[in-house]
Write a protein that binds this DNA or RNA. Structure first.
Lengths: 239, 239
DNA sequence: CGCGGTGTTGAGACCTGTCAAGACGTGTGG
DNA sequence: CCACACGTCTTGACAGGTCTCAACACCGCG
């Protein structure tokens, strides 16, 4: 049930059998949400954190003019709002992109478990820091890169992150985002997403059809996106 | 010496006298850097974290084309690379904007102190989560807001953050960024920064001269920037 | 079969970038 | 004390990337 989650943790540090049991024991429940549903609403008081078991979710913020910005994507195995454990309220919504299943971890159990296992506390702290790292990379994309480069970068990031969770098939993966949602990630309108996608396709870098993405020329795609997986902290070390 | 730092912590939760002593005891040393110097270099192995005592610093990333993006500003009282405690290497540089003084906290001491004080560990975890929250807000700015709105938002954020640290004089504060650096924060060229700054000035919202910023009409500035301080988590609660 | 969401295409507008030149100001060396 | 150099700020003209608006195609689903 939480294999993908454990793979992500173990890509960064060892997790003992006892710690694994402790993690599992934090979970009280499993909850399901349909696509496009707000899972956790901004400002709402939190008493639990959610571990995404299945599907894609996103951190979203709505704007005055009706627009929306996605600040990070979440996949199976991601603790989507572990930061809510310390913040007690989120600054953004968590929205289900596809149908999603979440494991529920009540904060009293999290507190108890992490206090008794300081190493796990540091590991989860690390995982939220990696979210920060991803945010910084998106900042660079949005601030300084062209539409083509931003899009290439995002497809590289998704590939790398899904690989760690064991959710890729070679250089190909399920890709449920609409062009509208893709635009909400990289700060473009859906019209321009469509044209930029065609440009990547025309250059033989990537193909997206039937809700599936296939990277045809990874090296060139990484070069266009100026992608360096460094920021994903894929290195096993004592934390 | 670390008053500004304690003010920031205490804006979010109580910090006991004993915890305060423990924080102070983490510091081994004070180090100084001239303006424009890289303080911590990306990928460098870290054995300590730095608490900014004095000056402005920034998280920066360099790009292939020679450009640079700033992903967050740091002021007196900010632990600029507490996330390095779990990451062991940073994904970005920390650059001194002005001359800076840092308190040094070796990681072995941090580990020892935070293990003995789980509440402090959660508090510092919270502080890095707030950095993440700020990143997300910048993502929204860069992805969806106009140049004018982004700039207005940034000036509001700086005011709010400096207020918490006790570094403002009414709605006015020292502002050492060049227009070039300001552009590196909000994804604009220095030429366009200059014109946008003039637009804010012309509308009577803000004045920037002699390395000092004065907000003339805070309410309008917040409205133009669509600013809501919510994301700074300025709420005292048990964490 | 019709409908709503999604994807595609074209034309024109607009915001921001690029390039270039000059003004201003401050620190340094003669 | 002056001359100069360098970084920063300012302004103008023009280019170009992305947005807006609009229309239509496609498709899965009720």
């Amino acid at each position: 049930m939480i294999e993908a989650h454990l793979r992500k943790l173990r890509a960064r540090d060892d997790v003992s059998q006892e710690e694994e049991r402790a993690i599992l024991a934090m979970i009280s429940d499993v909850r399901e949400f349909p696509a496009d549903r707000v899972v956790v609403r901004r400002r709402q008081d939190l008493k639990e954190s959610l571990l995404l078991l299945d599907g894609w979710a996103a951190r979203t913020k709505d704007l005055r003019d009706g627009g929306r910005q996605i600040s990070e994507l979440a996949f199976s195995g991601d603790f989507t709002d572990m930061h809510g454990f310390t913040m007690k309220r989120l600054d953004h919504n968590i929205t289900a992109i596809t149908r999603c299943r979440f494991a529920v971890a009540p904060h009293d159990r999290v507190l108890d478990t992490l206090t008794r296992h300081p190493h796990l506390m540091r590991l989860y702290w690390l995982m939220t820091n990696i979210d920060g790292s991803i945010h910084r990379e998106w900042t660079v994309s949005l601030g300084r890169r062209s539409a083509l480069s931003r899009m290439a970068h995002l497809f590289c990031e998704i590939l790398e992150r899904l690989k760690v969770a064991g959710l890729t098939d070679g250089n190909s993966y399920d890709f449920p985002l609409t062009q509208q949602e893709l635009g909400e990630c990289i700060g473009l309108t859906s019209v321009h997403v469509n044209r930029t996608l065609q440009a990547l396709r025309r250059q033989g870098l990537i193909q997206v059809e039937n809700r599936r993405a296939t990277i045809l020329d990874l090296e060139s795609l990484q070069s266009v996106g100026e992608f360096d997986p460094d920021y994903l902290i894929l290195e096993k070390r004592p934390r």
